[in-house]
Design a protein around this nucleic acid. Structure first.
Lengths: 333, 333
DNA sequence: TATAGTTTATCAAACGTTTGCACACAGCTG
DNA sequence: CAGCTGTGTGCAAACGTTTGATAAACTATA
């Protein structure tokens, strides 16, 4: 039946220490109800026998496991990487294991992983920018869910709120004299992209400049490279890109067109994940994904505790602009 | 006791279908021993009741859970990201959940995470380039372990074997006329760094050129930036860097020194994780971490099956040089 | 000494599965 | 008709914990 040789269990410790199984169990869960002497003795024996409790047995009787699932569309995206890293470190401090699922943005995979996690975890930190709301609701019925960068009514969501940073950025571009500003979108079905599109457009118009909306992309580096031509054809002197990866592509694209960043065209990104990798240094918005992850984990664990009685809530994490060399005043003609 | 309302279980399905619990269990595990009619009926009921088995109960009685742990020093390193992504996707196809642990290279964390995983997983995919051999052995005694890029006698290891690619690279540099070639090391305690250091040095000497060994780094971008000055002071006309991150730093550093890559100095990296991000395009060695991960998962699952009887083995994954613009012939003086 | 009260430790049931064994019933064979 | 041989199903034990109920051993009070 049990193939692998079983490790030391409560019963072994109990036998060795000359007490009952329940006593040993309580040494770990309720030591104050035991005599100090017994506790000391059992602790010593447990240590000697290298006893560690079987998490499966514990999970079975307790009704839930000390696990938590993180579902992301693409681990290799640096924003997600930071998110995952922070979620893991935050969970580790609480003794909680983190399952990771990379879905490649495939709805079918998202569904099946969520279903799997629903049975095995306390909750899911779900980052699925394009999943349908009804799907999300369905999952949230099976297991506590905290959404990342994707508000849904009645569910908790933690998101990067960069509206004011975007405003600051656009203002600065206008102050420098830019009169035609382009926005290079990410995936149109992504909530974040919708917000950014609108925020940029509103602010640019408010300042009396004109906004150029470029074709949708899937936020790959090469999409940015290609988009550079469109920008220059449309005559925009500055581009706000959906994220840093696209912005880096743009810079590469402009180089191929022999256009200089920032002298011929200014470029800004979003997330601050490329650090100093690209040249010229990319002006961008610090996405603070680590903070987002930390908050999300906190909320998730709170909501998975039925006694805590926390209510769903939308939490925005503020951002800051990181000024680097990719922005300058437009070339006078 | 059990806080969260229990989901449908075998007993519910059994009652509804008018059969015993064991029969329902067998419908999923051993359907061929049951009458086709019973199977059909129970399946229908299970479907209607949305029954999914409780993995904890199953894990308890089976003696192991369908989980696997991946321990890496730093998730945000793109090499690790690819590794993790591939490990996850490979495991998903087999219905195996992946725990992730980012240790920040802290031995204490590595130890505690491995211990935790030892109780809860079928095996650990361990990437700990600086952990002591005795620690590794200790962990391997508790749970099947497959090492990544870190051979240890008696344990299975899957590693990127770039010796022949490095040879090819050095040969090419020498053919181009480089006579003084520098190696920029990563962490000296890392096995991969030791191998690369030796391989580069041997090959360079064999070709009658001279090798410059630079100071150790911790493979951060800024280490590369700083190292550029040392390279130019030593008068090397080409640098082989431990990895792409360092190489990108070097390129940035040379730019600050007004040295042109590749005309003043050639630069090559390792891992091919920066794609076209840096300018000029970085000549590098494709690390094939996805393949490494896939192999490692295969081996891990094989070794965690006591019936399979697989023997520990060291598996090298061959690499290829990716030629980009960062290499050219040295400037004639 | 009997009674009540307080600590401390044990008993046994429960969590939701898997699986060896036993059993009932059918159809054959001699 | 007794004795097999299958086939399909059920019983009950086991996996390693947690925990409410309970008993045993003291201590303090009447």
């Amino acid at each position: 039946m049990n193939r692998r040789p079983s490790r030391t269990k409560l019963a072994d410790v109990a036998a060795e220490a000359g007490v009952s199984i329940s006593t040993v169990s309580r040494v770990f869960s309720n030591p104050e109800r035991l005599s100090p002497e017994t506790v000391r003795n059992v602790r010593e024996v447990a240590m000697r026998l290298r006893f560690t409790p079987n998490p499966m047995a514990r999970a079975l009787i307790m009704g839930d496991a000390p696990y938590l699932g993180v579902v992301v569309p693409d681990i290799s995206n640096p924003y997600m990487t930071t998110l995952l890293k922070a979620a893991q470190s935050s969970s580790r401090r609480r003794g909680i294991g983190v399952f990771v699922a990379d879905t490649d943005d495939a709805t079918e995979v998202e569904r099946s992983m969520c279903e799997q996690f629903a049975r095995q975890t306390r909750g899911i930190l779900l980052c699925a920018p394009r999943m349908s709301v009804s799907h999300i609701r369905e999952i949230a019925e099976m297991v506590p869910v905290v959404l990342v960068n994707r508000p849904v009514d009645g569910l908790t969501c933690v998101y990067t709120d960069s509206t004011s940073s975007i405003g600051e950025l656009v203002d600065r571009l206008c102050d420098l004299g830019h009169e035609k500003i382009a926005y290079l979108p990410g995936p149109t079905s992504s909530w974040a992209n919708k917000v950014r599109t609108r925020t940029v457009a509103d602010r640019v118009r408010k300042r009396g400049a004109s906004v150029v909306k470029l074709g949708a992309t899937s936020a790959r580096h090469e999409d940015g490279v290609k988009a550079a031509r469109e920008v220059s054809e449309q005559g925009a002197s500055a581009v706000v890109a959906f994220d840093d990866v696209l912005a880096a592509g743009l810079i590469e694209g402009f180089r191929q067109l022999n256009l200089s960043v920032p002298h011929d065209v200014s470029v800004v990104g979003h997330d601050n994940v490329l650090a100093g990798l690209v040249q010229p240094g990319l002006t961008t918005i610090e996405g603070r994904s680590a903070r987002v992850a930390q908050l999300a984990v906190d909320r998730l664990l709170a909501e998975s505790d039925p006694d805590a009685g926390t209510e769903p809530e939308h939490l925005g994490v503020g951002t800051e602009v990181v000024w680097r060399a990719s922005v300058a005043e437009p070339r006078r003609e």
